[in-house]
Amino acid sequence: MTEPFLQVTDLSKRFGGLKATNNVSFNIARDEIVGLIGPNGAGKTTLLRLITGILKPDAGTIRFKGKNITGMKVWDIVNLGIAGTFQNMRPFRRLPIIANVMVSCLSPRAMKTGEWVKRIEAKAMDALEFAGISDMALEKASTLSQGDLKRLEVARAIATEPELLLLDEPFGGLSPAEADLMAQSVKRLHKGGRFGRLHSEGPAMIIIEHKLQQLMRIVDRVIVLNYGEVLLESSPEEVVKHPAVIESYLGKGDE
């Protein structure tokens, strides 16, 4: 039997007395987009940060393409092909936007084809083009609005040409129309191919999002977290009808 693409087994992380994630297990296939939803404080971001290696788990293992990546350095995980975005955007504020993306283009994974500076700029430009902020490439990152910062986060993540992309609220701060556009581009990225000089492997994705309307349109499967535990794992159609999800999102009705 072949190994699953990403295999998370019994992952636990505590912050003091709080169990942020508790024995979380799931698998992700190479060609999937998985939505990760749950109320605030359910442990979604913690889970993503555990996978990208920013946080170290207390227990459990994460296997990526059959390789145990638990406790590896953040940059090693990125260079294996897992890229994530930050929920609270962390741009290099005093650098131009294009330089923000060029940092990602300078990672060994993105550099492995042996490119020289001019190509890197072009590649960074194509990542920005994909995210839709290429017209502001020379502005300082501190001048960007919240929504554009989200796009910058996405551009930085895809510039490393990941095989697994972890998006933390990619539609946050975008208007519904912009969120629709973003959802379309995410779907397009998932199909893979070339965007200018930027190559897309057609990454598998895990998307955390509260805007369920846009999310449900693009995902193949949804994992619902609550209090750090997997509440439900199912197709989008079933999830939105499931009583436990409605309860955890909207509260219990009177009847």
């Binding site: 990208t52 920013i54 350095k73 953040v74 940059w75 990125v78 260079n79 890229a83 994530g84 930050f86 962390r90 741009p91 290099f92 504020r93 005093r94 650098l95 330089a99 923000n100 060029m102 940092v103 990602s104 300078l106 990672s107 060994p108 994974r109 993105a110 500076v117 890197i120 930085r156 510039a159 490393t160």
Partner: peptide
């Protein structure tokens, strides 16, 4: 003024974000 310089700048701005870009800080 080179590629290394960009990474140096970025490390000053936000080290974690540089790590998350796949750079061995």
């Amino acid at each position: 003024d080179s590629k290394i310089g960009i990474i140096f700048h970025a490390i000053r701005e936000d080290e974690l974000a540089v790590k998350a870009a796949g750079i061995n800080t």
